[in-house]
Design a protein around this nucleic acid. Structure first.
Lengths: 248, 248
DNA sequence: ATTTCATAATTGGTTCTACCAATTTGTAAA
DNA sequence: TTTACAAATTGGTAGAACCAATTATGAAAT
C-alpha cells in the first residue's frame, strides 16, 4: 500500500473508503481541507490525489461544490467493461473464430512454430517461465497477430484482459481449465493443424469448437457448488447459447 | 482550447509542444519552475498538469530528475490503437457480421423499430438532431446491444471509436460515404430485413456485404487523388482482402 | 590525463498561507 | 411563501519555503 508519491497513498485511502461503502456512488466527499486533516497531509496532497482519481474517471470535481463519487462499476480504470463468463466466452467464440479464419491463409511458418511452442508449454512438455495460462493467452494472441490486423489484435487482447480482471471469473475458469486440460490440448492442436493446412474454414470451426466446449464446461460447473452468481448468468445466457450453437 | 481548470490548458500546451516535436519522445521536459514561468502560471498548475499527463501515460516523472516524454504512438490517450482504414473495415466486416448473426434470433421488436428510425435519419426522411454519421454509429451499436452481450457491445463501440479518431480516416470515409450513400441505405435495409426475419445467416451475409462494398469503395478511392498514405496501406491489405473475400 | 569523491546545484515532493471565484446555504425582506 | 441578498463553504491558484533524491561540478588523488 505504500506508494512512492504521497498523493498515491492518499488516492488509495480515498478509494478504500469508496469501496468500503463509506462514500457511496454519487455521494459528495468531504472538503479538501477536511480530508487533509483526516489523513494528516497537506491540502495539496489531497488535491493531487483527487485530480488523479478524476483522471481515472472515479471522481467528478465541481468547483465550489465538491468532489463526487462516480460509478466505478463499468468502464472502470482501464476502460474495459465487466463481463460475465458466458457472454465473454460467447464473444470469444465468435471473434476468435474469425481471427483464426483470417489468419489461416497468411500465417507464417515462424508463427506456426511459435504456436507449437506455446502448446508445448501448456502441456508441460516444454519448460518455460511462462505459466500455462500465460501460454494460453500467448497462443490466442499470436493467432491474432498473424492476421496482421491491429484492430483484431486489439479486440482479442481486450477480451483476454477482461477475463483476467474479474476475480470471480478467474476462479471459474481455473476450475474449468484444470478439469479439462487434456481437452484443451487436443483443441489447440486441432486449431494448429488447421492453420498449418492454411484452411480457413477448418480453423474457424476448430476455434469455435474450442470455445463451445468451454461454454459447456462452464454450464456444467455452474450446476455445482457455490457458483450462485454464475448460475444466475447461466440461466440468462443458456438460451442464447443454444441458439448460437445452431448457427455454428 | 480554453478549459475549465487551469491545469487542463497547461496540460494541452505541454501536449502541443510534445506533438509538435519540441519535446521528442524520451526527452526531458524543462523543470516545473521553468515551465511555470514560460506559461505564466504557478508551479502548482504545472505540477497538476504533469500529474494528469502521467495518469494518461504520456509522461513519466522521476523524482530529482525530471519529467520524461513517453511514447504516445500506441495505446494512446484512450487505450485505442491507431489503425488504418483497410484493417479496421476488415475487422468490422468479420466482427459486426457475427454480431448481427447473434442478434438476429433474439432481437426485440423495439430494437427493430429503433433501427428503422436510424435508417430514416440516415436517408434524411426522418428529421433529427443526429447527423447521418451519428445515426450510422447508432445503427451498428443498436445491433450490438441486441446481442445482449457486453463484450460484443464493447468491441463494436471500440471499433467505431477507432474510426472516429484518425483524422485521415475521417476524410476517406466521408468521401466514400458521400459517394455511395444510396448503396449504404440499401445495405442497411437488407441488414434490417434479415434481422426482422430473425435470419442469422442472412444477417451475417448482409453485414459482410455492407463492409465488403465499403472496402471496394476504399480501394477505388485509394486509386484517386492525393490519398498516398491510404494507397500504401491499400497495397499492403489488398492481397489479404482478396483472400478474406474468398472465405465469405 | 584519468579517476574518484565530496560538494553544490538542480529537480521533483510536500507543506503552509493567503486570496480568488464559484456554489451553496441561511436569513431577512417583500 | 417566495424572493433576494449576504455569509459561509468549497474548489482554484499563487507564492514562498523547505525536504529529499538526483545530477552536475570541480578539486584532489592516482
Amino acid at each position: 500500500m505504500a506508494e512512492k508519491r504521497l498523493y498515491h497513498t492518499v488516492a488509495n485511502q480515498i478509494l478504500e473508503l469508496i469501496d468500503s461503502g463509506v462514500f457511496p456512488t454519487g455521494s459528495r466527499l468531504p472538503g479538501e481541507r477536511d480530508l487533509a486533516k483526516k489523513f494528516g497531509v497537506s491540502r495539496v496532497a489531497v488535491r493531487e490525489a483527487e485530480i488523479a482519481l478524476q483522471a481515472q474517471g472515479r471522481l467528478e470535481i465541481k468547483v465550489g461544490s465538491g468532489a463526487y463519487v462516480l460509478d466505478g462499476s463499468k468502464g472502470s480504470h482501464n476502460g474495459l467493461p465487466k463481463v460475465g463468463p458466458f457472454e465473454l466466452t460467447e464473444a470469444r467464440a465468435l471473434f476468435e473464430a474469425e481471427s483464426a479464419a483470417l489468419a489461416a491463409p497468411i500465417i507464417t511458418d515462424d508463427a506456426i512454430a511459435e504456436l507449437e511452442n506455446y502448446i508445448g508449454i501448456m502441456s508441460g512438455k516444454v519448460k518455460s517461465e511462462m505459466t500455462p495460462d500465460d501460454a494460453d493467452a500467448a497462443f490466442h494472441n499470436a493467432i491474432a497477430r498473424a492476421t496482421n490486423n491491429h484492430a483484431i489484435i486489439f479486440v482479442i487482447d481486450s477480451m483476454w484482459k477482461m477475463r483476467k480482471e474479474a476475480a470471480q471469473l478467474q476462479k471459474v475458469y481455473r476450475c474449468v481449465c484444470e478439469k479439462d486440460s487434456s481437452h484443451r490440448e487436443d483443441e489447440h492442436q486441432a486449431i494448429l493443424t488447421a492453420l498449418k493446412n492454411r484452411d480457413s474454414s477448418a480453423a474457424r470451426q476448430a476455434m469455435r469448437a474450442h470455445f463451445t466446449r468451454m461454454i459447456e464446461a462452464l454450464l456444467e460447473a455452474s450446476e455445482e457448488e457455490a457458483y450462485q452468481e454464475v448460475k444466475r448468468q447461466a440461466s440468462e445466457s443458456r438460451s442464447r447459447y443454444m441458439l448460437a450453437k445452431q448457427l455454428s
